[in-house]
Simulated assay, not measured.
Amino acid sequence: MSDWAPKRFWTNADVQEVDGGFAVALDGRPVKTPAKAALHVPTQAMAQAIAAEWDAQLEKVDPNTMPFTRSANAAIDKVRVQHAEVADMLAAYGDSDLLCYRAQSPAELVARQAAAWDPVLNWSETFLNAKLEPRTGVIHVPQDPASLATLSDRTHALNPFELAGFHDLVSMSGSLILGFAAAYDHMPIEDIWTMSRLDELWQEEQWGEDDEAQALIAVKQTAFIHAKRFFDASRAG
């Protein structure tokens, strides 16, 4: 950011109303993105979350403790300028969605996948008007083009801030449908994260957990939950 510095140089971080949204100012100086664009966000809730991150900084600024600021930067500097490309990339997950590719064996894993994932595919058919069919094995079999078009239209309709959060919900879960399930509050975000890790959890049950892997998973889970919070804040009144 243009105002980003190794040490804290401001006293107060305040939210300001601007044309079309809200901004954050440090002692009256508007915060800008790394590309030097105005950091204007669509909702007061998001601006307040960003201001709180700046207020929480101590002597030195730690960007790793500022997820809302980083996500807003990404929405403005990256997603906004290549919205169609990002939406296309995410919509493409629908044709190889995690929920559709099932194990051939063992029977217990097959049953567990069906019990967890089939209801979400049924929800997609009824709520999203997009029916995706499960496959056995890893060989790609194309999904119905009409369903994929419907999912693509929904993805492209998201604004840059929604799409920035949605990007992580989809890419981290490996599932466009789980991304929409999170976006539309179909189930708690923690349950969606667990559902996305069903195969990994099965492997952990068989072979045990690795401490380093568990630490990395915890970091990813925190980022996944943040993506949902950022998505929600992009829509809050």
Score class of each variant (00 low, 15 high):
Glu205Trp: 00
Ile225Gly: 04
Ala223Tyr: 03
Asp211Phe: 07
Ala215Gly: 15
Ile217Val: 10
Ala223Asn: 09
Glu205Arg: 11
Lys220Leu: 08
Glu209Ala: 13
Trp207Val: 06
Gly208Ala: 09
Trp202Phe: 15
Phe230Glu: 02
Ala218Asp: 14
Ala218Tyr: 02
Trp202Asn: 07
Val219Asn: 06
Phe230His: 01
Gln203Phe: 05
Phe230Met: 00
Ala215Leu: 15
His226Thr: 04
Thr222Trp: 05
Gly208Cys: 10
Thr222Gly: 04
Ala215Asp: 15
Asp210Arg: 05
Lys228Leu: 02
Gln221Asn: 06
Leu201Asp: 08
Arg229Val: 02
Ile217Phe: 08
Leu201Ala: 08
Arg229Met: 05
Ala227Met: 07
Ala223His: 05
Glu204Ser: 07
Leu201Ser: 07
Gln206Arg: 15
Phe224Met: 06
Asp211Arg: 10
Trp202His: 15
Ala223Val: 01
Gln203Pro: 00
Asp210Gly: 10
Ala213Thr: 12
Phe224His: 03
Trp202Met: 04
Glu209His: 09
Ala215Phe: 10
Lys228Glu: 03
Glu209Leu: 11
Ala223Gly: 07
Gly208Thr: 08
Trp207Ala: 10
Arg229Phe: 06
Gln214His: 10
Glu204Phe: 06
Trp207Leu: 09
Asp211Thr: 11
Glu200Val: 12
Glu205Asn: 09
Asp210Phe: 08
Leu216Phe: 13
Gln214Thr: 14
Asp211Glu: 15
Lys228Thr: 00
Val219Pro: 01
Arg229Trp: 06
Lys220Thr: 02
Lys228Met: 05
Trp202Glu: 08
Gln203Ser: 08
Glu204Arg: 10
Trp202Leu: 06
Lys228Gly: 00
Trp207Pro: 00
Ala218Leu: 11
Lys228Ile: 03
Ala213Asn: 07
Ala227Gln: 02
Gln214Asn: 14
Asp210Tyr: 05
Thr222Tyr: 02
Thr222Leu: 06
Lys220Asn: 14
Ala227Cys: 06
Trp207Lys: 04
Gln206Glu: 15
Gln214Trp: 09
Glu212Asp: 15
Arg229Ala: 12
Ala227Val: 04
Gln221Lys: 12
Val219Glu: 14
Asp210Asn: 14
Leu216Glu: 15
Asp211Gly: 03
Asp211Val: 10
Gln203Ala: 08
Gln203Arg: 07
Ile217Cys: 00
Arg229Gly: 03
Leu201Trp: 02
Phe224Pro: 01
Thr222Glu: 14
Phe224Leu: 01
Thr222Asp: 13
Lys228Cys: 03
His226Asp: 05
Glu200Thr: 13
Glu212Thr: 11
Ala227Gly: 04
Gly208Trp: 11
Trp207Tyr: 13
Phe224Lys: 02
Gly208Tyr: 12
Ala218Ser: 13
Trp207Met: 09
Asp211Gln: 12
Phe224Arg: 01
Glu212His: 09
Ala213Lys: 06
Leu216Pro: 03
Lys220Arg: 10
Ile225Phe: 10
His226Asn: 05
Phe230Ala: 01
Phe230Asn: 02
Asp210Thr: 06
Gly208Met: 08
Thr222Gln: 14
Val219Ile: 12
Phe230Val: 04
Glu205His: 07
Glu212Val: 14
Ala218His: 04
Phe224Tyr: 13
Thr222Phe: 02
Gln206Asn: 09
Ala223Met: 08
Trp207Arg: 05
Trp202Gly: 05
Ile217Thr: 12
Ala218Gln: 12
Ile217Gly: 04
Gly208Lys: 02
Ala213Leu: 11
Glu205Tyr: 00
Glu212Gly: 11
Trp207Ser: 09
